[in-house]
Design a protein around this nucleic acid. Structure first.
Lengths: 242, 242
DNA sequence: CTTGCACCTGACGTAGCGTGAGGGTTTAGC
DNA sequence: GCTAAACCCTCACGCTACGTCAGGTGCAAG
């Protein structure tokens, strides 16, 4: 009947001596024998049990669970299933987190200076976004980002303020929404909007909900935005009525 | 200038009082004031900083990282990216783990009695499998499982031993591999094999590698399996030569 | 006999708080 | 003005699964 000392066993299993000490300490695996000097001697039964422990650990079980399974063999199938389910939940949570991180990174990308304030602001904006869009919609928006490409996105984002300026100018000049110049602006407006929503009406609704409930988004005053959107709305109505 | 006490602040932010104590203790957020009795009084600046902390924590940053980012604003973009990358690695590792768990659960499903030994054995078998099949192949096999359905899988698994018995009988009887009966057995053999591999030659190679390197798989002696496979191979050769 | 290696037993550190214990403070109601 | 409830304070241990010293013993080779 062969025996092994901690060091040998550690080398064979890839565990550390400390780990074996630990298992001994918590009573998960205590060697059957000791030398007169107190050195641990593991017998074949011990090695077998250690293999089982390693196997269960490789499935991510906590040491207490390992002990429980080895002790009363508690319905392993159910245990494994529950473990898998918990793990998948965790994975989903982390997946969402990773998506957030990506969005934040994307939001920071074209902000040239990145002060802490900027970072916080971006995070909070993303957080707010998540309240208006469902996960599916976020997914959809992400896919669209990839499809249209970063370059075009930057173009569009640069285009918005210019367009808003022009609309604001006409609005303040009191130009009739039916005026051809305003009609042209409305067409450009709807084009940009369509590029964002991808034609999805759900996205469009969510986006307008943002402007209705927030006071400021991405540095743009929401009240003014609502005004402008109203003006554009009238222009559209006038355009389709004619 | 308003101030808040810990309890109020905790209620507003959804954190616990203990958490705020902790942040104070580690010097991450210490209230600007205290009452004469020593009660914490947070000012507006403190609340702002707390918001930043909460934001960064919501991205999964460790408290030390939060401190670092707030202190020297260290290139947040890079930090966020690295964080996301690490997170995705973790996710992949956990994904693999979850897949293992599913496979183990599947392996246990049609083992009626589930002793600890059974469990360990299944785990070890799965572990060995993973050495022979690439992750892509595992993925492929999983998809095939879903497509053909559990019922058919159980049928096939029940069919193998019967077929092996028949082949073994002919082999021991010394039947010529060219014999029509053996030819029929060979056809059935190839059919079952094709159901497992799905026609993928890579899978077939990996599967045969298993039998070449192991001594026993799922209770079947590998040496005998190699013998039988040789016999089937000769039958195939005889069949195609004719 | 010494050198070097393997082994031993504590015991602290880790991340981010949870959860008491034991004892003051504030505040609303009477 | 008093009392009880609610709130606050400071320790300090607990949790996971070991890593990492520190200080000392055992054992085989030269």
């Amino acid at each position: 009947m062969r025996t092994w000392k901690v060091g040998e066993l550690a080398k064979q299993t890839g565990l550390t001596v400390r780990t074996l000490h630990h298992y001994d300490q918590i009573g998960l695996l205590s060697p059957s024998h000791r030398t007169a000097a107190g050195h641990r001697l593991y017998g074949e039964v011990d090695v077998g049990r250690l293999q089982q422990i390693v196997s269960l650990r490789s499935l991510g079980f906590a040491l207490d669970d390992v002990r429980a399974v080895l002790r009363d063999g508690m319905a392993p199938l159910e245990v494994v299933r529950m473990h898998a389910a918990r793990l998948r939940e965790q994975i989903h949570a982390q997946q969402r987190l990773a998506d957030r991180l990506d969005r934040v990174a994307a939001g920071l990308e074209h902000a040239h200076r990145v002060s802490p304030d900027e970072l916080i602001h971006t995070i909070e904006e993303i957080t707010r976004m998540e309240q208006y869009y469902t996960p599916e919609q976020m997914e959809y928006l992400n896919q669209r980002r990839e499809i249209v490409g970063e370059a075009r996105i930057r173009e569009v984002e640069a285009e918005w303020p210019r367009l808003m300026d022009e609309v604001r100018a006409e609005m303040q000049a009191g130009t009739d929404p039916a005026d051809p110049r305003v009609q042209e602006l409305a067409r450009r407006w709807m084009g940009l909007l369509a590029e964002f929503t991808g034609g999805d009406p759900g996205i469009a609704r969510s986006a307008s909900a943002v402007w209705e409930n927030e006071t400021e988004v991405q540095g743009i005053n929401a009240a003014e935005m609502r005004e402008i959107m109203g003006y554009i709305g009238r222009a559209k109505a006038a355009g389709s009525a004619s």
